[in-house]
Design a protein around this nucleic acid. Structure first.
Lengths: 374, 374
DNA sequence: AGAAGTTCCGAAACCGGTTTCGGCAAGATG
DNA sequence: CATCTTGCCGAAACCGGTTTCGGAACTTCT
């Protein structure tokens, strides 16, 4: 109560110092001040310093949108997240955003975020943000082999950078994790332990990474000198249930794999379920190596061996690339790859049974009455 | 290759249609067009329609920052997330963001997001965003009883809305989940099942919710007609390890509780660990009810009974309130509470032992040699 | 019919910056 | 010493909107 009622003229605050105030205070033209602050070459060094000093003495902060009206840039990176879909990266969303925010902040930029419920919604939101110039460009997470966002942005001449590769890279800047190399490494590790039949659970079709990881698996077989059996590649699985089904099917083969390489952790979780149902011990009877590095994997027994991705770094790198893209650098110079880090935990080891023994065990467990119907 | 080289004058695109273009096309003054589009009362209905039609015929989209220069509003809600700290809500971050984005989008606003590494960093980022007018106001997640952000924003006359309450609500708009009511309900449910000694694991001191939940616990005891024993309130626990220690200590009391109410799920996870170490079965020997609704809780055995929060709704509501705040509504009209939803799962049931029996069991298990030294 | 209101729109100022242009003064050149 | 540069800054236009102001045309009232 008391004196609290000092009725200011509504949201006046102290009206900020504008560039005109600053110019008046310095006795110069405001154009000069502007050029001084923006490092134009036709300003004397002494003047530049005087201006700068006065600027922070008066606490001058240019309005981003007032600058934008002339420069056409609001210094903001756009990000449209699609939240409906499966998302192994969801636990890391905060890290990803932190990476973007940090890199943006360093360059004196900001991030404009929106969430979409569908592909179409994503396009709509991006076009709106671009039209109103709320963002100067976009980071595109989760790329498809054929990505409608890419064609739309290319057509609209809106700068962007992909997190992931795409079918036709022309006009695209991108950053990606070499997950195919991780898959190769997984196969080689397993082969070195003595596995000769190694199954593969692919990711969602359409996504670029799914194709790449499959290639990485094949490359691993080749380097290990193992022959490829199409039957050892299951149906795609992006969640626990599908992962269980996939593993179940692979393990029911006449000559089942003794090790599984999974494209995503969630599928690997399902493989644990399948193994449990069949009375198989993970890391012994069945080895599993996966990809994503989800924290839940560490809680399983045995903990899941998987490849983890530094999403904070990814966000930061993508932001740098996007800003440089917006500033006009050629896309060919704005492409980068990083490696995934292997988390060597307990879910893989030397095979304890031959495929034949494993098949016998499975058949016995799975069809206790010996039937093979259905 | 081929013809691909059509060398446009760099990022020309087709230069957007401005309000002047539109005015020229209509043969009117641009001021008139602006007023027509913004529903000024001194524009004839027919004119308004003509303008609107022409606007979407030409695909006119005003530049947000060009508007802002005069209106002083960029139509953006600011959000600064602190990512270093413990965070039970982290798995729901996407939902929270989706709620904000949706509500903002509905009002034709956007969201500007930043992440900070410390309290100080948060203040710095908010002040920068506000100064540059990249955001018109802020959503403040995770409030403290004494919140430096609140005083800073009040001093700077920057609009904001709290997610959570704070010690001194003057000048504050807020939205919160009534987690104290959830705690009360938890106690009542346990009392109804026959528990008479119910322990409480508080949340982090300083946070407003911690105090409220403690009060809710006390209120529950009171309503259930149970007497309060200070020893039944443990040290604060915000993570699994501390939760385990807290539960261990409570269970080692001479007259231990047969049920635990935990302020946060993570602490409850620790209680599971403690129970396992003591050979106690959750839901039988020890009942647990918690708060947060983290998905991991459903994977425990038995699944954790907990209160879940609709963070998408929270984000949406906060955004509505903030926008109304920015538009000048009084803070007193911008306060709202919502309820948490109880997820009735397997971690609570009637007590299978009396406190005395439980104490005996614990002592036997925990000190197999009967000693009481360290 | 003239005065007084209303309705509705054009013209211009304005917001806070950036960028262009031109010119003065000092230094370099012949 | 005259001229040509060059360095440096002021003045003004400009960006794309919004808001104020004033007045023409049209009603309404007396």
């Amino acid at each position: 109560m008391a004196i609290a009622d000092n009725k200011r003229p509504r949201s006046t605050g102290r009206s900020r110092t504008t560039i005109s105030d600053l110019a008046a205070h310095l006795g110069m033209a405001k154009g000069t001040v502007s050029r001084a602050l923006n490092d134009y070459p036709d300003i004397a060094e002494g003047t530049r310093l005087r201006v700068r000093r006065a600027a922070d003495a008066l606490g001058y902060r240019p309005l981003a949108h007032a600058q934008a009206i002339r420069t056409g840039r609001v210094r903001s990176v756009g990000l449209v997240l699609q939240v409906n879909e499966h998302d192994g990266h969801r636990p890391f969303l905060a890290d990803f955003l932190a990476g973007i925010s940090e890199a943006a902040s360093t360059a004196d930029w900001t991030m404009t975020l929106a969430t979409a419920a569908s592909d179409q919604d994503t396009l709509r939101l991006m076009s709106k943000l671009a039209d109103e110039q709320k963002a100067d460009g976009f980071i595109l997470p989760r790329t498809y082999l054929e990505d409608t966002r890419v064609s739309a942005l290319l057509a609209g001449d809106v700068p962007f950078v992909l997190f992931g590769r795409t079918g036709d890279p022309r006009g695209c800047a991108w950053f990606d994790i070499e997950s195919e190399a991780a898959m190769t490494e997984a196969v080689l590790r397993l082969a070195k332990l003595g596995h000769t039949r190694i199954g593969f659970v692919p990711g969602g079709p359409g996504y670029t990474y799914a194709t790449l990881r499959r290639q990485g698996y094949l490359e691993g077989l080749k380097q290990a000198g193992l022959s490829f059996h199409p039957a050892l590649i299951s149906e795609p699985a992006l969640n626990r249930v599908d992962g269980e089904l996939a593993a179940q099917k692979l393990l029911s083969l006449d000559v089942p794999p003794t090790a599984l390489v999974c494209s995503v952790d969630r599928a690997a979780f399902g493989a644990y379920d399948a193994a449990a149902a069949l009375g198989l011990e993970i890391g012994k009877d069945l080895s599993v190596i996966s990809y994503d590095g989800m924290p839940e994997g560490a809680l399983l027994s045995p903990p899941l061996s998987t490849f983890s991705v530094d999403l904070r770094h990814a966000g930061a790198r993508l932001t740098e690339l996007l800003i440089r893209r917006i500033r006009g650098e050629a896309v060919e110079d704005l492409r980068d790859l990083a490696k995934a880090r292997f988390l060597d935990r307990g879910s893989h080891g030397p095979p304890t049974r031959t495929p034949a023994e494993l098949a016998h065990h499975v058949k016995h467990q799975w069809f206790p009455t010996g039937g093979r119907t259905k």
